[in-house]
């Protein structure tokens, strides 16, 4: 509350040294245990720490990521469009990161393609068709699955999907599709649970209005519920995609880790995260390869920011 125009006689105010007027100094405020200020110091420093963390991550990764262009004089354009990644070649080493960028994109979109129908279908099932069963049984199980560590998904991929690929599509079985399936399954519970929430948020009055004009259940879902939940559903999918994009170890375990551009989804390939995971430990700080890996990390950070901006945009449009 702001107080203006205090029509108080200054003489009386100072004359009455009432306890009501707070004229305690900074020292007293920080040492008294019932004081407000001590709590505030704690609370505000935590809030500031959050800003520091984000700024530090962005700054450090940007500075480190730009080294390969500034210090090692790699060309940014050839770096992101080049398809030749031969950092170890003694003569004329080449740093073309396009296969990894492509790999990351391919895994992300394929994973979304696999996960979206199943997740949205499940969400509709939970929130529209079998509400009781959905909230009592499916929802808790899905929430537990959200918490299953990604390496476990990787392990499952390694022991079930890779052998399956080997038998049915030849080759080693490690390929782009296997990576996409693993991440697709990994993001399923996340997407399904957010999607179910947004479908539940659609007011019942809309459904009743639709049934009242003789629509079937499916028509109600397709024409009324899904459009009403629209941008929340898209947000759920984009959130899933951003998780898929950032996933490292699970993908790395099944994708084959080949630095060339894949010709089909049954070829082994690599992503930004997998190449970083694999090579980071074997490089020395300050080498060109090390700097190049940091640049890949920087690209990863940039694309993550793009996802964040998209999600913000979507949720802002929903609120508006």
């Amino acid at each position: 509350m702001k107080i203006g125009k205090v029509a108080m006689d200054p003489a009386t105010a100072t004359a009455s040294k009432s306890k009501l007027i707070n004229e305690k100094g900074l020292f007293w405020r920080l040492t008294d245990r019932t004081s407000e200020s001590r709590g505030k110091v704690l609370i505000y420093s935590s809030a500031i720490l959050m800003i520091v963390a984000v700024t530090a991550i962005t700054l450090f990764l940007t500075i480190q990521g730009l080294r390969s262009f500034v210090v090692d004089h790699l060309n940014f354009w050839t770096f992101i469009t080049g398809t030749q990644w031969y950092p170890d070649r003694a003569q004329n080493p080449s740093f073309g990161a396009f296969p990894f960028i492509f790999g990351s994109m391919a895994v992300t979109f394929l994973a979304a393609l696999i996960a979206t129908p199943i997740a949205i279908g499940t969400a509709i099932f939970m929130a529209e068709l079998a509400k009781k069963w959905g909230t009592k049984v499916m929802q808790p199980i899905i929430e537990i699955l959200v918490g299953i560590p990604s390496v476990v998904y990787g392990l499952i991929g390694l022991s079930l999907i890779v052998p399956f690929m080997r038998v049915h599509f030849g080759g080693s079985g490690f390929n782009l599709l296997a990576g996409a399936i693993v991440v697709g399954i990994m993001i399923l519970p996340t997407v399904a649970s957010i999607a179910a929430d947004s479908i539940r948020a659609v007011p019942d009055s809309l459904r009743q209005a639709s049934y009242a004009i003789g629509a079937t259940k499916w028509q109600t879902i397709w024409r009324v519920v899904i459009p009403a939940a629209g941008s929340s559903l898209v947000t759920a999918i984009v959130l899933g995609m951003s998780r898929a994009f950032g996933e490292a170890l699970a993908v790395q375990m099944v994708i084959g880790n080949v630095v060339t551009l894949p010709k089909s989804i049954f070829d082994p390939s690599a992503t930004l995260t997998t190449i970083i995971t694999l090579s980071m430990g074997h490089t020395t700080t300050g080498s060109i390869l090390n700097d190049a890996l940091w640049s890949l990390g920087f690209i990863l950070l940039l694309i993550s920011y793009v996802f964040i901006v998209i999600i913000r945009f979507l949720s802002r449009r929903r609120n508006a």
Partner: peptide, 28 residues
């Protein structure tokens, strides 16, 4: 005071103090 948008003018005197004075120790 809990409502950020609220604003108050005038005098409410109590024990020779204007309660609306921003210096008032609201806790006391």
């Amino acid at each position: 005071d809990l409502i950020p948008a609220a604003r108050c003018e005038g005098t409410i005197s109590y024990k020779d103090v204007n309660i609306l004075n921003p210096k008032v120790d609201v806790v006391q």
